[in-house]
Design a protein around this nucleic acid. Structure first.
Lengths: 133, 133
DNA sequence: AGAAAAACCTATCAAAACAGTGGGTAAAAT
DNA sequence: ATTTTACCCACTGTTTTGATAGGTTTTTCT
């Protein structure tokens, strides 16, 4: 299951994509619009900034804004950045150590096929696809 | 991520499907073949029996066996039974309470589309697809 | 009748993940 | 100098995960 972190991250991105793309938007505004605790969003938006998805500016008039156009963000990168790997099983995650059963594992092909499906779904889906005027 | 419960359940089912379909197979044997603690498997196989996927027989000569043919089990039902709902977000689970934001939620269609994808994938995949001779 | 082999039942537990909260510091504009 | 903002660090309660431990009942075989 996708946790609140990934889901809220997506809502932050959608919220920003719906605002003036040039202006820095304070987190306070996002939190109020989305009805989510600003404190909690701080943790999440930090990941988005560190991951290079958002630009931030401190001080009065500061806030956050997108670094690219909405159609240039995939939902997959947003979720993976905040949520960790999309891999459905531990042995298929990036940092996974070699599974000794891999060659004999009858379920591995299933998990691989599933992992591909999930990856393609979320990486082909763009932030711009989630915004309606 | 699919947890060990769902993954081990699948391995139990595959193991049973690979044995003589008429005989009751003791859990001890399954545990040894799969290299998983029998005690832990007890918990998991209980779900499979209660969910109607397996027949069990107590006492000497007892054990577990499939109630249907391998091609009549979907991977989806096995995972969902042991793992709980396949829903990717809480608001799409069976027992979910109405989300007040549902009508305005810009991410809901995404989660629904994803939920369908996952559901179709796992319910179209049969236990028999995982077994090679 | 008794031993053995199996399922079945209940409780407990440590570690990790999840979902936050709280209090402060640094940076930038007015 | 004040205000507004991001940024940083620690902490906390709850739930889930991944088991382990010990005992009871059921069935078969001798």
């Amino acid at each position: 299951m996708i946790s609140t972190k990934g889901r809220y991250a997506l809502r932050i991105m959608i919220d920003l994509a719906s605002q003036d793309s040039e202006a820095f938007i304070p987190l306070k505004d996002i939190a109020e619009r989305q009805g989510i605790s600003k404190k909690y969003l701080e943790i999440i938006i930090k990941d988005l900034v560190e991951g290079g998805l958002l630009a931030s500016l401190s001080g009065k008039g500061g806030g956050y804004k997108l670094k690219r156009k909405p159609e240039e963000y995939s939902v997959g990168e947003i979720i993976e950045l905040t949520e960790g790997s999309l891999a459905p099983v531990a042995c298929l995650a990036e940092k996974a150590e070699e599974c000794p059963r891999a060659s004999a594992c009858m379920t591995l092909p299933l998990w691989k096929e599933y992992a591909d499906l999930v990856h393609n779904f979320f990486y082909n889906k763009k932030l711009s696809d989630l915004i309606e005027e």
